[in-house]
Structures are given as C-alpha cells and as structure tokens.
Design a protein around this nucleic acid. Structure first.
Length: 479
RNA sequence: GCACCGUUCGUCUAGCGGUUAGGACCCCGCCCUUUCACGGCGGUAACACGGGUUCGAGUCCCGUACGGUGUACCA
C-alpha cells in the first residue's frame, strides 16, 4: 500500500515554525517512500477562523519547499480537503456510532459541566465527564432522550469509552503506549452546534482519505487513545502513529511567541534562506546517524527515517540557525543573491548599481555577515557615494597623522588600482617619502576611504569602489 | 492533582553491554592576516540520582527526582 500522510493545520493564524517542521517530517517521510502528502484544513472551530490564514500557511510551506500532492489548493480525488465542507460526513459517522452503541447523547449545559468539574476538583479527583451522574442517554433513558431530541434540546454526542480495559498502540517514535480506559474521557464527538470536534473529524478524514501514517507533534500523544478507540468503534484499522518531539523555548516549555520569533514569516522577514531554515529545523529532532549536517531537502528526503527521530524535545537555538544561514549564504550563487539584494539596495536609497558589482560585493563581504541584507549595511561604502559619519575623535587622530595626510595628498594624483601590486607600489612610494612603513598606513587608509576600521582586502575593496570615488574621498580628506 | 511522554557537554546530538563517551553551535587560546571575517589547529564542558541484572551499564530492568505535554462543546 502506498504511503499517504497528511499535514492538517487549523486556519487560525500564521504558520508556526514547529508546524513547518511537522509538515517537513511528513513530507520527507512520504517522499522517501514514494508516497503522497495531503494538506487538509481543520476549520471545525468557527470561533477561531482567521481570514487568509490558509493561503498564508500554504505560501510559507511552499517557500520552504514543502509541497502537497492533494489539498484544497491543488485538488485531488479524496476531497473536499477543507473540513467545513465535509460536515455531513461527520454527522453521518456520529450517527453510525450512536447506532452501534459506542457513542451517546448528552444534554449538559456549560454551567452543569463547570459545576461537575468544580465538585471533582474539590474532591481531589481527576476532572472527567461523569457518565453516571450527568444528563445523558444513560441516566435519562432512551425514551426521555428521544423526547428531548424531538423538542430540539441542545445536545452533544460523546464517545462511550470502555471503562474496564486498556487501550494500546505502537508509536513509531516512542514504542508501545498503554493507557487504561478509565483514564480516558468521554470525548465530545459532535458539538451542540452540529460541528465535529477535532477528534471525530480527524479520525473520519484520515480513514476516508486513506492516510497510512499520522505524523504529528507530541502534544497529541495524550489524545491518541481516544482516536484508537474511535477507529475501533468504526471497525476501522487505525493508521500508524508517530509523535514527534516538540520545539522548545530556552526554558524548555513549548516554543512560543513570548520568547522570540516563531512564525515562519518572521524568519523569512529576518532574511533567513529557506534552505537554511529547513536544514536546521530538520535537525531539531532528527539526525542521519553520521556527523554530516548540511542537507538539501532532496538529500533529507533520501535520508529521513522515523526511527531516527529523537524522543525528547529540542530547544530551538537561534544562534545555530544563524550560523547555518551564514554557511548557506557563503555557498549560494552570488548572481542569484545579487538579484535578491538589488531591491533591498534601492529601498535604502542607493543609486542603481549593476548586478555584477553587487555580486562582486557579495562575494567580497559575505563571509563577514550572517544575512544577505547585512551586506547592504556592511558595504555602504561600496554602494553609496557618501560615507557614514566619522567619529570626531577618530577623525581628529586621522588628521593628526601627518604621514597619512601627506600620502593621501600624493595618492590623489597617483592612485593606481590597475592591480594589487600597482596599488601597493603607489602607496609605498608616498609612504617612503613621508618616512613611514607602508604597512602602518593600511588601517588608516581604510578608515579614510571607507570610514570603517574593518573590512575585506583593501585593494579589492577599493577596486570595487572605483578609482574616481576613491580619489574624491582622498581629496576630501587631505584637501 | 491525575494521565502520558521525556532526561548524554550551556544548546542540537552520536552512542543501541566492553568507547580515552564522538561531532556541531556557543565560548576561550594559537596560527593565517599589519584590519575584521573565513579557514586551520587546540582547549573548557555531559551520561539527573538510587537500586538491581551482568564478569562488565550512558546503553537492560525498577524506583526517585526533575522537566514537558495533556487534562475544553480548541486544534
């Protein structure tokens, strides 16, 4: 049987970095086995729906290179792929459960349920739906239930969890998991508004869409027994489950907004390359078993296996991500990067610069920065005509350097940028005349010409700035 | 509280009974470079604790501690 996995986000906002990783693992696993990846939108909670969230999430996924074989945006033969368009299906299936006695009607109000929980809490017992004390099909009887239903009373449908047995399943990441039935709540399947809960919709859809492997985050682990029970109630074979570890904040809590950027769009905005983000995130919880750590998404697909997924959560290390982005920045094609940098440059008000110059600047400076856009700042003395203001003290000490002033003056007429050697020779000539070693002039010269004390090789930098602008800068300093 | 899951350097991790416990990020030192960075070399740093099992345990078992997740008519 062909592998079919699904990524099932709910359209309540932007795509979380953890969701990206879950989607990625699904994608890698399916593609590794030559299977299909399905996108399904779980919008059964009408109150949390956010307009445009689905499109945003798809866009971010595609930016990262995670694509789908089926989904609301590409179609497929198991649709519709949006749960709100499948409501009849859930109702029918809930009815089937009612008919075979694995589900029942309940009529409790929110207040009654709150009171129940308060009582349980006071008594020091676990809050769980008390089937024998609340207003439901069991306590009311079939006749009263039918009457209430006929009256149009608000009701829900709950799963009748068998109290006396264990529920067990094998998790592909964690191994065997056993939970006692009495620990599992009588989960609501169909809400009083007629909409299904996640639990029902998820099981029905996974079955109907022929999903073979459910790969999702660890937070779903505690509710998996309910799902296993649902498959049983329907008489279906459950899919394989794999619960992948969470991405964590530095304090080891579930990765969240308060501790830094968590939306994929944030990372994109900050200038991360998708290849770097995917590579890094893949390594949070999975490794190939070797010491290699650079992988394209294709290589990840080749190597990925669920049995090499780590069990414990991974603290998200922004610094290592940054390092990895820098690595990708150094290896990427300079011409391609130049095209990406061009709009940034014009946004910052630099005059039009030809692509080759931008590419050459990127090649020159990329190993000194972590992000492509940093080059726009770092290379301001190449891209712009005017230099950043000089610190007053620095300027004073520069002007106090007689030899430097003298050399700069001389260079105005004789600066030779035809080659590195020619440049050095022209500096040397004036340095000797001024009675100083040429080497001692390199730093101050850089200061005069770029207003920076650090940078790439001076000759190459100057060549990029161009003779004309260099001479103007020398003249403005020495003149 | 209860249930489930987890626990190797600060962080990501390798390890699947016998290792000087390896790699990467970070940090530090040296080299390269009259700058910065890259690069190269080297260094600091970990098996949560207690019992077993075994000739031998980071590796297997049981406890304890700590942490996380869940405990909704949210997903």
């Amino acid at each position: 049987m062909s592998v079919r996995v699904r990524f099932a986000p709910s359209p309540t906002g932007f795509l979380h970095i953890g969701s990206l990783r879950t989607a990625l693992y699904n994608y890698l696993f399916a593609k590794h086995h030559g299977g299909q990846v399905i996108l399904r939108i779980e919008d059964t909670d009408r109150t949390r729906f956010v307009q445009g969230a689905m499109e945003e999430q798809i866009a971010m996924l595609e930016w990262a290179g995670v694509t789908f074989d089926e989904g609301p945006h590409v179609g497929g033969s198991y649709g519709p792929y949006i749960q709100s368009e499948r409501f009849d299906l859930y109702r029918e299936h809930a009815q089937a459960l009612l008919a075979n006695g694995t589900a029942y009607y309940a009529f409790d109000t929110a207040e009654e349920l709150d009171a129940m929980r308060a009582r349980q809490q006071a008594a020091g017992i676990a809050p769980r739906y008390d089937r024998s004390a609340m207003r439901n099909q069991y306590t009311l009887g079939d006749q009263e239930t039918a009457r209430l239903l006929a009256d149009g009373a608000h009701h829900v449908i709950r799963l009748a969890v068998p109290l006396t047995r264990d529920v067990r399943y094998t998790d592909l990441v964690r191994g065997d998991v056993v939970v006692q039935g009495r620990e599992i709540d009588d989960q609501i399947l169909l809400k009083s508004d007629g909409f299904p809960t996640y639990h029902l919709a998820n099981v029905v859809d996974d079955h109907l869409m022929a999903i073979t492997h459910v790969i999702r985050a660890e937070e779903w682990l505690p509710s998996t027994p309910k799902h296993v029970l649902l498959y049983e109630a329907f008489g279906w074979t459950p899919p394989e489950f794999a619960h992948v570890p969470l991405l964590l904040n530095a304090d080891r809590s579930k990765m969240s907004k308060r501790h830094g950027d968590v939306m994929v769009s944030d990372f994109r905005k900050r200038g991360y390359m998708p290849e770097a983000l995917v590579n890094y995130v893949a390594l949070c919880g999975w490794n190939p078993g070797t010491t290699e750590e650079f992988f394209t998404i294709g290589e990840l697909t080749e190597r990925f296996a669920l049995d090499r997924v780590h069990k414990a959560g991974a603290v998200f290390d922004y610094r290592k991500l940054e390092w990895m982005n820098a690595e990708y920045l150094r290896k990427a094609d300079a011409a391609l990067l130049a095209e990406q940098l061009l709009p940034v440059l014009s946004e910052r008000g630099y005059p039009f610069i030809d692509l080759d110059t931008v590419a050459a600047t990127i090649t020159l400076l990329r190993e000194r920065v972590h992000f492509l856009a940093d080059i726009a700042d770092f290379g301001d003395y190449i891209f712009g005509d005017t230099l950043a203001a000089l610190d007053a003290d620095v300027e004073a000490s520069l002007r106090a350097n007689d030899a430097l002033v003298q050399v700069c003056k001389g260079l105005v007429g004789t600066l030779d940028l035809s080659s590195s050697e020619a440049f050095k020779a022209s500096v040397e000539q004036h340095a000797v005349a001024a009675g100083v070693k040429p080497g001692s002039l390199m730093k101050p010269l850089r200061m005069v010409l770029t207003h920076r004390d650090v940078g790439a090789d001076l000759y190459t930098t100057l060549a990029l700035i161009g003779k004309e602008r260099c001479i103007a800068r020398l003249a403005s300093f020495a003149g």
